[in-house]
Design a protein around this nucleic acid. Structure first.
Lengths: 347, 347
DNA sequence: AATGAAGGCCAAAGCGCTTTGGGCAATAGA
DNA sequence: TCTATTGCCCAAAGCGCTTTGGCCTTCATT
């Protein structure tokens, strides 16, 4: 059943039926009800393509996840972020279209997305420190919103980010207050913007407390369990091992815990661990009593909010871009404790 | 730049330009080259909407993830599966559209998807044992492919599944061969089809070895770290604790390991663990030497393959549906060993 | 030289919607 | 009573493509 058929059945023009369904005022109440009833009865839903052609709007948002090759990793928070954004789209009649794009060929990919008029805007995932995408997207006139920020881009743009700097500064400060002086940072890949901010937060806190920065304690890698394990294992075996770890992800922290326990040490006593937690539902940080002391922020609700900001930007192209920075919650779990005295165990 | 403008610049009709770009034969070689060059030069890409309207094909596949409420969980394998499928779509000029749908209102959601002609077919995620979707989709005439299977649906349909039954039978058999008699099963939610198959594989293997089934050892829950931990902790504290655990997910297994170590036991010696492993890149099961003994299967490549099967079904509507069952690889890690003798430790 | 068949191109219809620019009554205002 | 106004409705154009049906050359065949 299409518009033509529906209006024929009703004995009305397509114009009137279309207007009735889209809430335009120049339709009598009686007719509107009649049309709506018929639409329900015949399960009529306008073709998104035809409507898109006619209106020029796609009623769709693109989510572009860059990937350099087949073995590149999908960020584990992706699914949850998407779920959040999807809720917003569903409420607003938008669709989400997802593209896996080649990192090495972004330029062309985004241009094509725009040219084909497949989307009204895009969400930029996984921004790097000097990401070229904001400039590119502004250039080709495709509205966008960034999940995170791009430090090297200074014109105003829509984004939603976690306050990574302060979160990691706070976490570091907490460990320092517990007496820790050798605090290892297991950061994500520092090409990523968020990782840079986290490192700076960590460094700022150490600096504020007059603690020197030891490059040997700072590591950067994909946030996997294995990397967390390998790195912690290596550090704990060094001659001057850290007494605390600051992890970029709960997954990394799980690897760190494994290394700690493998050495026969007790987490929260011999070695402290603080981690960032994206609150992924399948990797909950304990229940009411958190296992890990953590700075946390719900990535799913981030998806909801950022999608909202992008829709806003699309609807009001000339309004100032919405920029949201979410503060992390700090929760104390069992993974932290006072720094052990030197002679207390064999470290 | 659209078709009209492009053909005007070239001094050709829209017909000819369209045909040249779409590889139809009735265009001279010279003209075709000229057109292709111009298309590149002006970065011309046909509007997907207009093309869809004209051809009746959407060149898009819907991925529908059912969710009952805002706190429902996105399956952690989702991101990887999607990435695999996305590769296939990119190669074939398809787009992926993702809908978060309300589990309680599926009927209406799928009908609308079809009516709006937004997709040429859908991938069904997370099939339940008695999932109504295959019947529904057949009914409304929307091509589909299932990631998994639906036991209660007996007409032929396109699917790709892991051989869950045999994988869990093999894993159970391996533990039995090591002398284990009390083997706990930490299954996923048994409304899910795959979980049912896994349980049956487990039961079949026990049965084949003449071992009775103890309901107290069979648990079913969302596959989270916390659930794995809580369940294992509870079981290990019982008067007749299991000597081995069979887990539905690496994430659950991590929780089990935590419970084991918390009790001061050694995994692979006091208690054995075998798990299913979806090979998520951020949760690698060790490197060359696996930590967990596991049955594993790469979910990302599953995404690639199933997408291919669906595209095939769309292209050849009358061909027999492709049905793929992937066998798991069995890898031995450090988490399994001979069943301890009763008196060996305090269990 | 006449005929047919290809080869290469084009005009126009149509996909299913929205939107512009009226038109016709009924009602209100002068 | 006559003109505006308002309320409802409609015909037709247009969004950017694909595809049908034809037209005009050329070139090979009789």
């Amino acid at each position: 059943m299409n518009l033509k058929q529906l209006s024929a059945t009703l004995g009305l023009s397509q114009t009137t039926v279309s207007r009735a369904l889209n809430g335009y005022p120049e339709v009598s109440k009686a007719t509107r009800h009649r049309v709506e009833a018929a639409a329900r009865k015949y399960n009529y839903h306008p073709s998104s393509r035809a409507r898109g052609l006619a209106t020029g709007r796609a009623l769709a948002i693109g989510h572009v996840i860059p990937m350099s090759d087949q073995h590149d990793m999908v960020n584990p928070v992706f699914g949850d972020f998407i779920a959040g954004a999807g809720e917003t789209y569903a409420q607003n009649g938008y669709e989400m279209i997802l593209s896996i794009v080649d990192k090495t060929n972004e330029h062309e990919t985004y241009r094509r997305l725009k040219q084909r008029r497949a989307v009204d805007g895009v969400i930029v995932h996984g921004p790097r420190f000097d990401d070229a995408r904001p400039a590119l997207l502004t250039d080709i006139g495709l509205p966008f919103a960034v999940h995170g920020r791009v430090s090297r881009y200074d014109r105003p743009y829509t984004y939603l980010d976690v306050n990574n700097h302060d979160a990691f500064a706070q976490a570091t400060g907490y460990l320092v207050a517990l007496g820790h002086r050798r605090i290892a940072l297991l950061n994500g890949l520092e090409v990523m913007d968020f990782a840079q901010r986290r490192r700076k937060g960590y460094e700022a806190a150490l600096h504020a407390h007059g603690i020197g920065i030891d490059p040997a304690l700072m590591h950067t890698a994909e946030m996997t369990e294995t990397n967390g394990y390998n790195c912690a294992r290596h550090l704990l075996g060094a001659k001057m091992p850290p007494t605390a770890f600051l992890c970029a992800s709960l997954i990394t922290a799980l690897g760190v815990r494994r290394a700690i326990e493998e050495r026969g040490l007790v987490m929260g006593k011999d070695v402290s661990v603080v981690t960032h937690d994206d609150m992924l539902p399948y990797l909950q940080n304990g229940g009411d009593t958190p296992i890990f002391t953590a700075v946390r922020s719900c990535v799913r609700s981030a998806g909801r909010q950022l999608a909202q900001s992008l829709l806003h930007a699309i609807k009001h192209p000339n309004s100032a871009p919405q920029q949201t920075i979410l503060d992390c919650a700090f929760v104390v779990g069992h993974s932290t404790g006072p720094a052990p005295r030197k002679d207390e165990h064999g470290l």
